[in-house]
Structure formats: C-alpha cells, structure tokens
Amino acid sequence: MKLTDLLTEDLIKMDVEGSTKDEVMNELASLIEANGALTEKQPYIDALHAREQQSSTGIGFGIAIPHGKSDAVKEPRVAFGIKRDGVDWASMDDEPANLIFMIAVPEKSAGDEHLKILQMLSRKLIDDEFRQSLLNATTKEDIIKLASEI
C-alpha cells in the first residue's frame, strides 16, 4: 500500500472554500463521502469533533491533521486541502493552518498497513522542504506526485 492508494485526485481541493475549522472539515468530509468511503457522513464528522475536543490537531507550522476513527468509515482515506490565507485551527502556535490533511480510519480495520502509511505521512510533514513543496504546488497532479514520494 502507498499513500497514493489512500489519497487520490478526487480527494484533493487546491483552494478550500470554508473559512472556519468546522466548515473545512465538513468540506473535506464531503470529498471522502463522494469517494464512496463512508457509509454515512455524520458519525465520521462526530468522530473528528470528538478528537478535536481532546486537543487541537493543529500542530503548528501551518498544518492540521484532523482525524477520525469511526464505524461509518468503510476504507481508510486521506483528503487534502490547501487554504492559502489560512484557517484558524486553535493550533499550538496560534498560527492559522494552510495545509489540511484529513484522515478517515475505520473503527475495526483489517491490518494496520494504512496506519503505517499515515505514520510515514506524519513524519514527512515535519520536513520543512516537503511542506514548502506542497505549498508551491499548483495542480492536483503536483500533489499526487509529492504524495507518491512517501
């Protein structure tokens, strides 16, 4: 399995419309729903909110990784959105988030391969250069290309 198995072009939004955390999560969740990976959207949204309530997934450096584990998720997916002027994510460094990787994971999943992929992604996002290349990307193909490096 590769990250590009989880993150496909239809799950990417180069310019996120929402201007609040909730709107953005809702928007990206719609992409995952349209992709057919959800049985129902609301339980997944609830799982995202439950996670945000524990602590913000805005980890700083302009990155947010909202993630939800739910029975409503059929298959693991990653949606990605860019918000050029940033969206407030109650991040640890108070900076707005520009790069949003939103993760959907089934409650009970066979194997943990997808978790390994997400682990790789998480580690890669620490890399300044990788983040900069994501921000520099202009097309979905660019994003997929970067994702395939992982």
Partner: peptide, 12 residues
C-alpha cells in the same frame, strides 16, 4: 489520544 499522527510527528 488516537495514535495516528501526532505520536509520529513528535517522534520525528
């Protein structure tokens, strides 16, 4: 808490 992302970012 979920052990999906932050665990590994902090490790890295």
């Amino acid at each position: 808490p979920n052990g999906i992302a932050h665990t590994y970012m902090a490790a890295e």
